[in-house]
Nucleic acid binder design. Structure first.
Length: 938
RNA sequence: GCUGAAGUGGUGGAAUUGGUAGACACGUUGGACUUAAAAUCCAAUGGCCAUUAUGGCCGUGCGGGUUCAAGUCCCGCCUUCAGUACCA
């Protein structure tokens, strides 16, 4: 009997599916464990070998936990709304739902062939109406909530309305929009319904506001900050401009502090936590208001150094600052205007690239120092960003390098306010060594007490207070796309109204094309049946809008991150039609125990999902306020691209050592045309693409054509994609799984190299041969030898440790060692071969199931208890452990593996006498087992 | 600049967290089997030197230090990758 992986893998995949082997129960006596992968966007290109890396790791862990007696929830689904399907629809007219459905089929087939233990009965798709019904529901809950800073949680908007009608808004400490007016209870009751609704929008956790957004004309849509890389769109690399639009926003800024402090409670990597911290960008300082001389205006600034307030020698406003035009004097007007013109023409990108050039213009106006009343010249400069803080700074040249450079450049005085510091070369920024001078009541104080005193003094004259500033902005939630969740929103006289929950979902309407309309409206503007009838509570034809009870529906759709911000909760109870998930299910599964996915989602999905979870927690819908206890970022598997050198301006290609000093361009060649020795199959290359059909080649002396290799991200456009289908076909799913783990540590970025797979492939054959001979099963009831048991328990110990530390790569090595040792021992004993199979089954489940069944078991190996390590089998043959003795002498003690350091010390102490007697003989190694010395190697 | 991670053979990577560096695998070389190839099996494989054999010296990015003992800990550098940035 030979190892026929194709037959075996198909057989067991079918068995698992039919038996529902991996179905999780929502209530079980067993402890629960929830292992989750970041669900994929089903792209048209299908999976490459890089995609399953994290899934294989999580699958191993999920299978391990099942062996360990846990009720494991290990689901999978699709983040199936997204731009590529829509782009494809624009080009071909095919409905994105069809494209998506086809892509999902491909994904499912590819995932199935790898043998994952997903509970597919819980599959979710963000684009299915059964699912996005609840995304819409959450949106409505956000609309129906405000953030109470006092209680530090979200509360129903009804509470706020009640407070307004009794006390107005002056006593409410809530997160709200900047331009919220003050009003009394009386005012409130006098407001029209329309006015009240307008005010409430300033408080709701999702609100409609005119915001400056990142508009991508090419894609015809708004992008979030994390969808922009280097000033161009992440997808497609199109230019992005700033534009004012009325958009839905999410008041994530209300959660800034909790998103920050919550990081302390979860087991995520430091790198990831750090990027979330940076993104939230908390800075502690003060807000200071400077009066402007001869104007009825104040300039508010944020500073982290209120202690340096007496060092202010000028102020700088961002060119876009709203006060600029008011303040500028007649004399300076021309200069200021031409400067603003010049900066607005420069793109963000240019502005970033050109950091070193100092530029700015004096407005002619002066502010007044809050304490000394001295005049402070007001400048504008593009080093101050409109989007951060208040878009204005108080410049303290002696304490900030940029202010210093600006002052030097424009010959503005640089007063010294630190004692014992030389500032002739640059600013002094070391807070820890700060000693304030020349600063009236702050003199001789250090950073901390000067800061406190300055804030107190500012508060006393009502010109400032302590303030914490966050970089985190509210998230724009509207996208001008077709293929996304429709909002459950219609408009009456321009005011948004929510559709009642019992009438959800509002499903995507049909449109005849997926482009924006001629008038620039989103694609939903093309839908003819897209109006809300409040009488019949249904979506009706637009032509009925002139009726009294029919109103226009929202034309935008939700962004990609909407559906992915709560899907982990839906898996707990995916078929529930009455709730997003039942309370029993939520209380049982609580949260994700292990989440595996890429670190590229650090400031997108992983932040938004935490935000929504905290919101749902506040409103009492989920039992915990962090959705994932532990998170592991799997590294990427990179492709090894191949490049051929084309001599510039010709169709002639030179082998790598034949380039000499000719000018060449390196062009990607498909990796399948190149062998392991970096030699190109020239004939296949000619056939590959038409343009190369007539190519000429300058070969190396040995007649081969050498290519240049480079490791890059695996991508279709780089022709370096390796398809898992081919690997499964040639080596099997078990080999693919083992090899992906064997490549290196999970978190690491590592290049794929198909050649190396022969190692794990021959391991599987050896494993098979250990159990199965020419005449069938070799396993017997013969007693295990001491060596057998030693090998087994050594392997149990290491593999258990490996899995618990997520170092799956070393486990594979340990299996190889074990199989080699058992083979050398001619082991046939069921007593050790049975547990060995259980150890291996999370990694190579198909072959394990087959051998398991050939050994006579008639239930799946996945329900078997994981073998326990028993140290007694390692005691007799043990490991050396060098120790120092009397500070100088060195002995090597050979001890059993399971001893702690303390036990070793005790052992040594117990034999101090014996060892002392040996000193003269200088033994190299003393072999000890607990209780007695058994051997001395001299 | 700041933050995070990492530098070990020809290659991917191990190293019980201070204890024989290079496990395991790829690759390479030699051998067996074969008409041949594939597959399989055996042996060698960090560098240098030496030998009949036993052996010796050097080696974990660089320079110091602590220790009986350092890839691992401490101090000072260099390099690479990733994230982020006129953030006041």
């Amino acid at each position: 009997m030979n190892y026929n992986f194709k037959e075996i893998e198909a057989k067991w995949q079918k068995y698992w599916a039919e038996q529902g082997t991996f179905r999780a129960e929502n209530n079980a006596d067993k402890p629960k464990y929830y292992v989750l992968d970041m669900f994929p966007y089903p792209s048209g290109a299908g999976l490459h070998v890089g995609h399953p890396l994290g899934y294989i790791a999580s699958d191993i862990y999920a299978r391990y936990k099942r062996h360990k007696g846990f009720n494991v929830l290990h689901p999978q689904g699709y983040d199936s709304f997204g731009l590529p399907a829509e782009q494809y629809a624009i080009q071909t007219g095919q409905h994105p739902a069809i494209t998506t459905e086809n892509n999902i089929k491909t994904y499912r087939r590819q995932l199935d062939q790898i043998g994952f233990s997903f509970d597919w009965s819980r599959e979710v798709r963000t684009s299915s109406a059964d699912y996005y019904k609840w995304t819409q529901w959450i949106f409505i809950q956000l609309f129906d909530s405000w953030y109470d800073n006092q209680q530090d949680k979200a509360r129903p908007i009804a509470d706020l309305v009640e407070h307004f009608s009794n006390h107005g808004n002056s006593t409410v400490d809530a997160s709200c929009s900047e331009n919220t007016p003050q009003f009394s209870a009386q005012d409130w009751c006098g407001f029209s319904e329309q006015q009240q609704q307008e005010i409430l929008l300033h408080y709701r956790l999702t609100y409609l506001a005119e915001t400056e957004v990142n508009w991508c004309p090419e894609l015809g849509t708004v992008l979030a900050n994390d969808e922009i890389v280097d000033g161009v769109s992440e997808r497609g690399g199109h230019p992005v401009i700033r534009k004012k639009m009325t958009q839905w926003s999410m008041r994530i800024s209300a959660y800034a502090e909790r998103l920050l402090s919550g990081l302390e409670t979860i087991d995520w990597t430091d790198a990831l936590k750090e990027s979330q911290r940076n993104w939230i960008g908390k800075s502690v300082g003060a807000s200071v208001r400077f009066r402007v001389k001869n104007h009825d205006a104040e300039i508010e600034v944020f500073t982290t150094r209120p202690d340096t307030i007496f060092g202010v020698s000028f102020m700088t406003l961002a060119p876009e600052h709203e006060l600029v035009s008011q303040l500028t004097t007649e004399q300076q007007k021309a200069d200021i205007e031409s400067y603003i013109q010049a900066t607005s023409k420069r793109s963000e990108r240019e502005r970033m690239a050109d950091v070193k050039t100092i530029s700015g213009v004096f407005t002619g106006a002066f502010a007044e120092h809050p304490f000394t009343k001295a005049p402070i010249p007001i400048w504008i400069g593009d080093y101050v960003l409109a989007g951060y803080g208040t878009g204005a700074v108080m410049a303290v040249p002696c304490g900030d390098q940029r202010d210093y450079d600006f002052a030097k450049h424009f010959k503005i005085p640089i007063p010294t306010i630190f004692s014992g510091v030389d500032i002739s070369e640059g600013a002094f920024t070391d807070k820890a060594k700060t000693k304030i001078a020349n600063s009236e009541f702050l003199n001789d104080l250090d950073f901390k007490s000067a800061t406190e005193r300055a804030i107190e003094a500012l508060e006393a004259i009502n010109q400032g207070e302590g303030k914490i500033n966050y970089r985190l902005r509210d998230a724009v939630f509207s996208r001008q796309r077709y293929w996304g969740e429709p909002f459950p929103v219609y408009y009456v006289d321009g005011m948004p109204k929510m559709i009642e929950i019992q009438h959800l979902p509002i499903t995507l309407p049909e449109v005849e094309a997926y482009l924006p309309t001629e008038t620039g409206e989103p694609p939903l503007g093309r839908a003819e049946v897209w109006a809300w009838d409040t009488q019949h509570n249904e979506v009706v034809h637009n032509s009925k809008i002139n009726h009294e009870t029919v109103f226009p529906l929202e034309l935008n759709t939700m962004p990609g991150w909407a559906g992915s911000s709560w899907y982990f909760n839906r898996y707990m109870d995916p078929q529930n039609t009455r709730e997003f998930a039942g309370q029993d299910a939520l209380n049982y599964w609580q949260q994700v125990d292990l989440y595996i996915g890429g670190s590229e989602h650090a400031t997108g999905h992983l932040l938004y999902a935490r935000f929504w979870q905290k919101f749902l927690f506040d409103r009492g819908y989920v039992p915990v306020d962090e959705f994932a206890k532990k998170l592991i970022n799997q590294g990427m598997i990179l492709g090894t691209s191949a490049f051929v050198a084309r001599i510039e301006g010709t169709n002639t290609f030179a082998s790598l050592d034949q380039i000499l000093d000719q000018n060449v361009q390196f062009i990607h060649a498909d990796v399948s045309l190149v062998n392991a020795s970096d030699e190109l199959d020239v004939d296949a290359f000619k056939l590959w693409r038409n343009e190369f059909a007539t190519a000429q080649f300058i070969l190396s002396d040995d007649g081969t054509f050498k290519v240049k290799r480079e490791v890059e991200k695996m991508s279709k456009s780089k022709y370096n994609v390796v398809n898992p289908d081919a690997i499964c076909e040639n080596y099997g799913a078990d080999a693919l799984r083992l090899y992906e783990m064997f490549l290196g540590p999970l978190e690491q970025y590592k290049p794929w190299n198909t050649a190396g797979i022969t190692g794990v492939s021959s391991f599987l054959k050896k494993l098979w041969k250990l159990y199965i001979g020419d005449s069938g099963l070799k396993v017997t009831d013969a007693a295990a030898t001491k060596d057998n048991l030693k090998t087994l328990h050594k392997t149990i110990k290491k593999v258990t440790e490996d899995i618990e530390q997520f170092s799956f790569n070393t486990s594979v090595s340990n299996f190889m060692i074990a199989v080699n040792e058992f083979t050398a021992q001619r082991c046939t004993s069921r007593e050790v071969l049975r547990p060995l199979l259980v150890l291996i089954s999370p990694y190579a489940p198909h072959v394990a199931e087959e051998l398991w069944s050939l050994m006579g078991h008639n239930t799946s190996i996945s329900t078997t208890q994981f073998p326990e390590f028993d140290p007694k089998h390692l005691i007799e043959s043990s490991k050396t452990y060098p120790i120092s003795f009397n500070g100088k002498m060195r002995f090597k003690l050979e001890l059993s593996l399971d001893l702690s350091k303390e036990e070793i010390e005790q052992t040594v102490l117990a034999h101090e006498k014996t060892i002392a007697q040996l000193q003269g003989k200088v033994p190299k190694k003393v072999i000890v087992v607990p209780g007695k010395i058994v051997n001395i190697v001299g």
